[in-house]
Computed example of a mutant assay.
Amino acid sequence: MSYPPDPNNPYGQPPAAPGYGYPQQAPQAPPVPGYGYPPAAPGYGYAPAVPQSMPGLVMTTRVLLFIIGGVQVILAGFCLIAAAATKDVVTKTSSTSDDFISSIGNAAAGILLVVGVVWALAATLSITLGAKFGKGGNGVRITTIVYGSIASIFGLLDLIGGISSKVTVNIIIGLIWIAICVIWITAMCVRDGVNWFNRPRY
């Protein structure tokens, strides 16, 4: 029967030092990440949140672009029809009227034609921008800002003209148009709007 060595016995076998006579454990290598998953780099901050759905203010801007585009189509059609009708009247009455009246009629028809084409181009731009809000990038955002800035100038001119001539309709239209342009520009400049148009696309 054996007994454990007495630690107080001066003639006993000294205890073995730890690590001698035993194989030392090799240092373990860090775990290797699985294939297909890159190792996550330690970041010092948080990446901007990527919106999963279109932010509310951006969606409002998109709806307003479609509504304004529809109104612009109606105005373009009205101006083009009026231009054609004016030209027809001038052509039918050219034999009985003097040259001065005919020139005024032709000038009016030309102005209506140009205004109709401008409204048609504006309608195309409005509807195209609204359609590209879903998949468009930063170029759509910048174009919308420029479009809203230029359009707000026309709204301001309409407002000033309405105030100077005391025409209530022009004042109301000018205020509404300026408010719409401010919504467009604001939606494109806030953080949610910037993140939406700069989000990664796969």
Rank of each mutant, 00 (worst) to 15 (best):
7 P>M: 03
10 P>Y: 07
18 P>W: 09
23 P>S: 03
23 P>R: 05
26 A>G: 12
27 P>V: 05
28 Q>D: 07
28 Q>W: 09
32 V>I: 15
33 P>H: 02
34 G>M: 03
36 G>V: 09
38 P>G: 04
41 A>W: 07
42 P>M: 07
42 P>R: 08
43 G>V: 12
43 G>F: 02
44 Y>R: 11
46 Y>R: 07
46 Y>C: 04
47 A>P: 15
48 P>K: 09
48 P>E: 11
49 A>Y: 15
53 S>T: 10
58 V>P: 06
61 T>K: 04
63 V>W: 14
63 V>G: 03
65 L>F: 03
66 F>N: 06
67 I>Q: 06
71 V>G: 13
76 A>C: 12
79 C>N: 15
83 A>W: 01
83 A>L: 03
84 A>Q: 14
85 A>P: 08
85 A>E: 12
86 T>G: 15
90 V>H: 01
90 V>K: 02
92 K>G: 09
95 S>Q: 13
96 T>W: 15
97 S>P: 03
101 I>R: 04
101 I>A: 10
106 N>T: 08
108 A>T: 08
109 A>Y: 00
110 G>D: 13
111 I>R: 15
113 L>R: 01
117 V>N: 07
123 A>F: 07
126 S>K: 04
129 L>C: 01
130 G>N: 04
131 A>C: 05
136 G>T: 02
136 G>F: 00
143 T>E: 02
144 T>A: 10
145 I>L: 11
146 V>Y: 14
149 S>Y: 12
149 S>N: 11
149 S>T: 14
152 S>F: 05
153 I>T: 13
159 L>Y: 13
160 I>R: 09
166 K>V: 11
168 T>R: 14
169 V>F: 11
169 V>S: 08
171 I>M: 07
171 I>D: 03
172 I>K: 15
176 I>L: 12
176 I>R: 10
182 V>Q: 03
183 I>A: 01
187 A>H: 02
190 V>G: 05
195 N>C: 08
197 F>K: 00
198 N>W: 03
200 P>C: 13
201 R>F: 04
202 Y>V: 00
